[in-house]
Nucleic acid binder design. Structure first.
Lengths: 206, 206
DNA sequence: GAAAAATTAGTAACTAATTACTATCTTTCC
DNA sequence: GGAAAGATAGTAATTAGTTACTAATTTTTC
């Protein structure tokens, strides 16, 4: 058995550790205020060493966004896989999304923080791509739901997709603000129930 | 008529101009990246002059939050005033909120930006108070709606209020991300219609 | 002419990035 | 099999550029 505790990690693993350190820090710190020194400190490394693995700070953020996009989408796809009813699949995606965020509170903060910036960084492009992919996936589900009669044909696809994502973002915002992550998990089923009624209910009102 | 164009503004007016300058800048810049130099430049003033009117930067942000809270709440109250039906009042509030934000895109960004920070600044306390007041107002409306039979008694008040605010925040987020503010105004009525059906619809599902 | 307001010219602290150097691991080759 | 040689990872110190904030001086306004 090895007594020697590794100090020097291989480059790829060090990059992974870096990304996780940023996600960790983003859980409690405004992304814009995360310094390279803070990242290094959190992973017990000197600040300069970071730049042996990333050409600049932007590259770190790019890697973080890639991490978030991949993990989130695979998590959501896995949750919806094998569910025949589109509405049920949407519910599974909704809850999986919330679960992912509650496990990684830093993830949505990185996303929002990056997307708010004015200038178009590579990291921002990744975030945009993620949202687009998400919206397209939802559109597919809504369409098949209509064809199966689970949703009324009059329903506005775009509004429904937008509200789906918006509802999640709103829930996340509220939990970030209150600082209570569990609140989000508990509220999620009830909130989705209202959303579902909203898009599925065929009652007419003037 | 006065030919002399004032260069030196009285202190109070200068403070107001400062707040508006920050809101202006926040429309296109991440709040965390707004520097005192940028604020001064935007109002054609030297950077040092700002500190003749505010003891520090935090005081500026506090003033901005106060501005946002007062204007937003008065706008919303005005919109709901004189409407007897609570549901209709909620719709008016919803649309007034969206209209306010589309006129001042910097306002929600300041709010979100401030609320995301970990440490409890005075500005953050103001933002929290605003949200709390908002939620209480909604709770009142939902309660009276129930008593008038406009909403089902089984409805979860807290979930409904949370979703109201969350839906708005989600809409705002989407527009900030896409950069298209008008999109939000156009989508708002349709989105509220879904929300309304969601809370009001009495159709049962398993 | 004097109080209020703004300018000019700083400072100390912090940030991303660079550099010269050291330690540790891996491969090579007789 | 073990020393020499090279590659890999990390350190510590330093750089140029920003940032919030301050103090001395000048300008504006009534």
């Amino acid at each position: 058995m090895e007594k020697t505790r590794k100090k020097n990690l291989p480059a790829e693993e060090r990059r992974n550790v870096t990304v996780e350190a940023v996600i960790d820090l983003a859980a409690t710190t405004n992304p814009g205020d995360i310094t390279t020194a803070a990242i290094a400190r959190h992973m017990k490394l000197t600040q300069g060493a970071l730049f042996r693995h990333f050409p600049n700070k932007e590259a770190i953020w790019q890697a973080v966004m890639k991490w978030v996009a991949e993990r989130l989408m695979s998590r959501i796809e896995k949750a919806a896989a094998g569910i025949e009813s589109p509405l049920e699949a949407m519910q599974a995606m909704f809850l999986a999304h919330i679960a992912f965020v509650s496990e990684h509170p830093g993830a949505p903060r990185m996303l929002f923080g990056e997307l708010q910036g004015a200038k178009a960084t590579p990291a921002k492009r990744l975030a945009h791509a993620l949202l687009k992919q998400y919206a397209e996936r939802l559109n597919e589900l809504i369409e098949t739901a209509k064809s199966r009669g689970e949703l009324p044909n009059e329903l506005d696809n775009q509004a429904a997709a937008m509200l789906f994502i918006g509802t999640i973002q709103g829930l996340i915002m509220q939990s970030l603000i209150s600082g209570d992550i569990d609140q989000m998990r508990q509220a999620a089923p009830g909130v989705f129930a209202i959303y579902r009624r909203g898009i599925a209910c065929s009652e007419l009102e003037k």
